[in-house]
Nucleic acid binder design. Sequence first.
DNA 1: AACCTTTACAACCGCGGGCTT
DNA 2: CAAGCCCGCGGTTGTAAAGGT
Length: 284
Amino acid sequence: MGRTPCCESKGLKKGPWTPEEDKLLLDYVHANAPGNWRMLPKLAGLNRCGKSCRLRWTNYLRPDIKRGPFTPEEHKSILQLHAIVGNKWSMIAAQLPGRTDNEIKNYWNTNLKKQLRQQAALNPAAAGDHHPAAQLAGSSSSLAARHTAQWETARLEAEARLSMLSTTSAATTSVTASSSSSTAEHGADAPPSDVFLRLWNSEVGDTFRRKAVAAPPREGKAVAVPPPGDDSSAASNVTVAVTTEDYQVFMDLAAEEFGLFHGGFPLYPPADGLAQSFMFADFH
DNA sequence: AACCTTTACAACCGCGGGCTT
DNA sequence: CAAGCCCGCGGTTGTAAAGGT
């Protein structure tokens, strides 16, 4: 593949941006919407590579970026989403308006990861055994730290299991995001959200599906769900469209089953009313 | 006050993948 | 179909600020 070396030109500035450079970039983007990043530095009069300009804009200068510490709600959402999608920072950021993937990634690496390590040190048994909630019940550490450890443990466990399964199963699963963000573009053929699928395929998922069957589909979105334990339907091309609302209900149920997150933990309402939908084709 | 360590976060780097030619 | 171009992503690094000794 033709890869473009970045900043290969001599004399291009690197490192921290000055207010003057910021102003040049802002002025240009305001006058001309960000388009060709490669050409932008030259057009804007910046001695930077296009990549650096794009990064500065998307991570710092964009007007819709929310500054300041993460709220408890954002904290919870990050924990939950990370448990589902792992280090897919852009996917997580897509659910947190005003937050960048870089910001979330930094927050995770400096804050949440540390909590997890501390929790693991306090309760090493929880790191590798079966039910996270059972392992951690009775712990005296903070609730947030337990949440982190529980979800991370569940995630790692499920990933390992799915990894084993994937070597013998011909199941094909796709996850798509319906939003118009760049994440959607890149996520179209992304690997399945392992833990989500594991939860979905577990008793928790069965319970959810039973409830989904009992309730009529909402807002015209087709919710075709295989009856619990129906292997024949599982073998066929059953497509399940999960709306944001479904997703929230499902995750709350999963949390309930795990004995976690008392009171549930809301995701941010999607900007377009349907921030994310997961499509499971050839469901197994 | 000086030095060392830790923390937080901005920025860089290399890569993968989509699109165009 | 292959090569080139461009963009975005995730991992990593650099560094200023804060805290500790």
